[in-house]
Design a protein around this nucleic acid. Sequence first.
RNA 1: GACCCCGUAGCUCAAUGGAUAGAGCACCUGCCUUCUAAGCAGGGGGUUGCAGGUUCGAGUCCUGCCGGGGUCGCCA
Length: 598
Amino acid sequence: MPCMSSLAHILSGVVAAAFEAEGLSTAFGVVRVSDRPDLAQFQCNGALAAAKSAGKNPREVAQAIVVRLKENQDFSRIEIAGPGFINLDITDETLSRYLSETAGDGRWGVPTIISGETIVLDYGGPNIAKPMHVGHLRASIIGDSLRRICLFAGYRTLGDVHLGDWGLPMGQILAELETRYPEWPYFDDAYRGPYPAESPVTMDDLEEIYPAASQACKLDEGRMERARLATRDLQNGRAGYRALWEHFINVSVAGMQANFRALGVHFDLWKGEASVHELIAPMIEDLREKGLARESDGALVVEVGEESDKKEFPPLILTKRDGAVMYGTTDLATIVERVRDYNPFRIIYVVDQRQFLHFEQVFRAARLGGIVSNPETLVHAGFGTMNGPDGKPFKTRVGGVMKLEDLITGGIDKALARLNEAELAADMDEKERQEVARKVAVAALKFADLQNNRLSDYIFDLDRMTSFEGKTGPYLLYQAVRIQSLLRKADLPEGGNSALRDPQKAGISLSSADRPLALLLAEFPDHFDAALRNYTPHILCDYAFRLAQEFSSFYGNCHILSEKNNDVRAGRLALCELTLGRLLLVLDLLGIEIPARM
RNA sequence: GACCCCGUAGCUCAAUGGAUAGAGCACCUGCCUUCUAAGCAGGGGGUUGCAGGUUCGAGUCCUGCCGGGGUCGCCA
């Protein structure tokens, strides 16, 4: 029977009952890991707040609670400190029992949400015809991590790449190609035969053509006008444009998939803005009938302002003056589609925080139009901008953006160099060495990004992102690999460690050298819960690092395999297994793969 | 101009309103003939931008100011 929560949560229940018995709210009973480990393992600060609401002396309230808690055998020490903090230590038996009971089912104390609700996650958002650059890193890996976190919590998850494949850039490229190659059959309205199966452009071509087209439109209003018309004609189904556009999609998606494969980022759906094109007309019709869509300066808009707005809120534009739709329109139609197909509990958008206003417009329109009934369905989990060392949005020295592919291969090269220095790599074949280097490099990249608070901007520093020492992904891998190696040498009996398998008999014997690690292991459900509730993978990064660090300290201070006392040896091996299990899980939740050796 | 976010160690970042604000990098001192040194043990480094306020208690909440970034209808 697995424990369904963290130790602190279980202790909260005990202390809350004491508060209730004193006629006080159970909310005061919250117990958390002490922020003063030198004073206690756990603390409850509720007596202070309770005293205030009851008009009593805090220490007297605390004293009454302590008297009741003394009856509980799980506590080894209960003390009042300062103005009324209740400091708590638990017995080693209680700690050991908790760790044993939460081992073995792979959940480490995290309860499963059994509702089976669906969460759609929208992340990545790469654009057709543009190479993926470092800016796509954040959306991809934060989104993929959140998908893994939701999945582990028990939700059904659908990660959607949501390609940028339907807007003005498509028209700009079409117009540019039509200017350069007017003889192509794609531009001949009289052409009736099948269009070529082979793409006339490669990804390299597109990488040159798109910036050229974009620049031309910026400088020349005539070119921009033709790009707008091409966009509209594409959206209206002009056959030659559609055929050429499909080639763009195919060559672009092939490039993206290579990048995502290297990163280990997974998507369940490869839809894009164009996927919902057929839903737009009926959706607009419906919004018209409801009186929500109206003409404004030639455009069709939905007013989304609210009474409480501090400043005027711009309307959502459904169709522009020229009749073409905007990305807000496709985003709204995508909600229509997702609700229809998946009836999601949540739709989480992992998109740059600078698009806050856009999503607020779309979300308000969706609520007004009755597209979603629960306002909490739609969530924008925004992230901060990736800046250069100068504090401005990141650019390479030559002024362009760094391609994601170059970032990854650069990291792999550095990892290979590090591997070659170490003697361990000598007996690896070329393929294994490459794969280990890729895992190390990707771990470095992902951890360097994910450890930052999702919402705050952060400085992109190439050297730091491909650093393997200190608070880095490779450090975590290294600790996990060391534990794996140690456990292989431990020659454990079939079915695992007796200290875990038979907790009633042996238990995990603890000492001052390993107790901090044991306590930290018991914290896992709290950190998972915080990461899930707030959509913040960095919480798990921090926990994983602390766990690895605590283990490394333990490993350095205690020689495990040569331990003479069988109970102590078994207990320490059990802690190794428990640490490895959590480390592997947390790394998996972060989307980080572990090599067998490094 | 209006609105939103940010300001924490030399640098990059943490810290559900709680006790003595923590890590990593960089710098300094030790430790590889015992389980992987991508490591461990230890050290120096802070008026949390400034000024008020609320609170038993503020890096955290409120007000003002200074500094930085972002957004503000026909791009995505």
